[in-house]
Design a protein around this nucleic acid. Structure first.
Lengths: 213, 213
DNA sequence: ACCGTTATTGACCTATTGGTCAATAGTATT
DNA sequence: AATACTATTGACCAATAGGTCAATAACGGT
C-alpha cells in the first residue's frame, strides 16, 4: 500500500524498454484476434498495451512488421508441442494417433486457432508469412504423420493407400473444429468439444486404417 | 457483325440497369477472393465491372452491403448442390458417404472455398453473415449427415458413437483441403487433389464406422 | 427530331489512420 | 543536485479510400 502504486493506472510514463515489445505484441494478439488485421487500429493496440501510438513505431517499423511479430510469437510458442510429439516417432500407429490427437486437442485450446484464422484471412496479403506457417508448422506436422503412416504400412500394420491422404484424414477434424469454434464463437451455435472429438475420431479412423489381420 | 459492336470496349456509357448488379457482384467476387475485403478498393471493383465508382453506390448502399450481396450470391448458387444430396436420404450409409464426398469434391472446385475463406476472415466484422452461412449451409450439411448416421445406427449398420462427431470425421477433410488449397494457392506447395482424397477418405472412414458384423 | 426521364459519371469532400518527429520527462551517473 | 541520455509522448502530416452529388448523356416515347 505504502510506496508501490498499483501498476495499472500508476505513473504515466515509465521507461521499460525491455518489456514493451512483448506487451505490445500481447495487445496486438488480442486485438488482431478480435477484429482482424485490417480493422484493428494501431492506436487501440497502443492503448491496450498501456503505451502511446508513437511507442509502437519505436519497436515495430510498421503495422505489417507488428503482424509478423505477432504471428511468429504465437507460432514459436506452439512449436514445442509439435516437437514433443515428434519424438516418439516409431511407436505403433495404434498408440501414436490417439496421443497425437489428444495433443492436438490441447494445442487447439490456445490462441493458435485465432492465429490460424488470421493467417487464413491475410494469406494473400502476407505470402511470406504463409510460407513461415507452412514450413514451421503445417509441413512438419504433415511430415510427422505421413512418416508414421509409412512406417506402419511397411510393418503391415496399416492398409495400402496414399499416406498424405491418410494424414489429412487423421488431423483435419481437429483443424476444422478449431476453425468452426473461432468463426462461430460469438453466436449461440453449440459445437462438440475438442476432447471427445479427438477420442472418438482416433478410434474411428484407426479402425478404418488398420490392415485386416 | 454489322451494327452490334463487341461489348468489351464498346461505347462508354450504356444504360443497363438490370445487368449492373450482377456484373458488379461478379467483379467483387473475383476481387474480394483475390485480395480480401479490406484490401479491395471499390474503385477497382467498379473498373472491373466496366463501371464507375458512383454506379456501385447506386446499386449498393455501401461496401458492407456489397459484401453481403456477394456472400449471398455464392451461397445461394451452392444451395442446390446440398439439396440434391439431401434427397436420397435413406440409402444405406455405405452408399451415401462416398456419394456425398464425391459431391463435396465437386462443389469445392468452385468459388465456394474462396468465399469460405472470406467468411472466416471477416467473421467478426459480419456476425449476421456468419449466421446466414451457418443456417443456410453448414447446419443443413451437418444435419443431413448426422441424420443419415443416426438412421444407420438404428439399422445396426453403424457403430455406437456421437453422430455429430462422426459427421465431422466424415466431412472435415474436404473442408480442410479446400481451405489449404486457398491459403497455399500462390505458393509452390503441392497438395493432394480433392477427388482422390474424397475416395480414399470415404473408404477409410466408412470402414471405421461400420459395425462389425 | 425533340424532349423528358434517369442511369451513369467522375470530380469532390471528408473521415480515418498509418506513420513522423520535436518536445518532454524518467533514469542513471557523478 | 545537476547533467546527460534516451524512452516516451501526442500533436501533426499526408495519403488513401469510402461515400456524395450536380452535371451529363443514353434511351424511350411522341
Amino acid at each position: 500500500m505504502s510506496g508501490s502504486e498499483k501498476v495499472g493506472g500508476g505513473r504515466r510514463r515509465e521507461r521499460r524498454k525491455d518489456d514493451r515489445p512483448a506487451e505490445i505484441i500481447d495487445a496486438a494478439i488480442e486485438l488482431f484476434g478480435e477484429s482482424g488485421f485490417g480493422a484493428t487500429r494501431l492506436e487501440d493496440v497502443a492503448r491496450r498495451a498501456g503505451v502511446s501510438k508513437g511507442t509502437v513505431f519505436v519497436y515495430f517499423a510498421n503495422k505489417e512488421e507488428l503482424f509478423r511479430a505477432v504471428a511468429q510469437t504465437v507460432l514459436a510458442s506452439k512449436l514445442g508441442g509439435v516437437r514433443s510429439v515428434a519424438t516418439d516417432f516409431d511407436r505403433p500407429v495404434a498408440e501414436l494417433i490417439p496421443a497425437l490427437l489428444e495433443q492436438a486437442a490441447q494445442v487447439m485450446e490456445s490462441r493458435l486457432p485465432a492465429m490460424i484464422r488470421l493467417l487464413i484471412a491475410e494469406a494473400r496479403q502476407f505470402p511470406d508469412l504463409v510460407r513461415v506457417w507452412h514450413d514451421e508448422v503445417a509441413s512438419k506436422m504433415l511430415a510427422l504423420v505421413t512418416g508414421a503412416i509409412r512406417a506402419g504400412q511397411d510393418r503391415g500394420e496399416i492398409k495400402a493407400g496414399d499416406p498424405r491422404i491418410f494424414a489429412i484424414s487423421i488431423i483435419s477434424p481437429m483443424f476444422t473444429l478449431a476453425i468452426f469454434r473461432e468463426v462461430f464463437a460469438e453466436t449461440d451455435i453449440d459445437l462438440p468439444d475438442l476432447g471427445p472429438l479427438a477420442r472418438q475420431h482416433a478410434a474411428t479412423i484407426l479402425c478404418g486404417m488398420l490392415a485386416p489381420k
